[in-house]
Amino acid sequence: MAETGSLAAVQSAFAAALEGRGDDAIAAMIKPMDGVPAGIQLDIYRNNIHAALTRSCQGLYPALHALVGEGFFHQMMRDYHRLHRPAHGRMVDYGHDLPAFLESDDFRNRYEAANRHPYFADIARLELASFKMLSAPEMAPLDPAFLANIPPQDVESLRFDLAPYACLLASPWPVLDIYKMAMAAAEGDDSVNAPALADNPARLLIIRLHGDVEIIPLSYGDFSFLMSLDAGAALGESAAAAFASQNDFDLSSVLSQALSMGVFASFTEK
């Protein structure tokens, strides 16, 4: 136990009060403020912390915020903050556990809406991936001219690495359409219709292009192909997987589009 009044004792007691483990220890060290109970003074700090964390998550998840509304978002954030406290002061890294939180029993049991809107977690995943791609390292994309130097018989065995600013996301829900609807609503435009939820999965490429993130819907075949490459399979094997999921899969078209967009950072032979 830290010595009474020491910096360690103050910080331990203050942290306890801010994290809801009781005000008594710190209140005994607070100089009385004319007419204001210590709990009210501490509330100012509690409110500031909640506001800072919530502001940060709202910036990261604007579509989710628009979908659930201000009141729900704040309540949800109180629970999230209690379970996922920041470990450092870099708020750009805070809130990244939200998709998992939205799928947790803790969340589902507490919020009936979570069961009526099962796509919340995937919307958050889409927004988090967009932020991560936006702030990914700078890297020159693979120059398509490299292909000219590969003997045709070796092309099948090429393996490709996705650039750090590009990733793939699949969801059983039409998350891109829901995302667009929510962002339009956030701007005051309620005219965008809600998409059908049944049998309407999303297969998306999320990529930073010219300093902006683009979210591009892919066909089943194109998505399978890129997923397979991203998992480390060779080009021939990935194309076979794509043909299996879509019989009109067009290898040369998807490859040239991906190369011209800069989806790949590098390749290896064999």
Binding site: Q11, S12, F14, A15, L18, E19, Y45, N48, I49, A52, L53, S56, R85, P86, A87, H88, G89, M91, Y94
Partner: peptide, 9 residues
């Protein structure tokens, strides 16, 4: 910061 918690204020 208190130990491994960051109290964001």
């Amino acid at each position: 910061r208190f130990e491994d918690h960051f109290l964001s204020d």
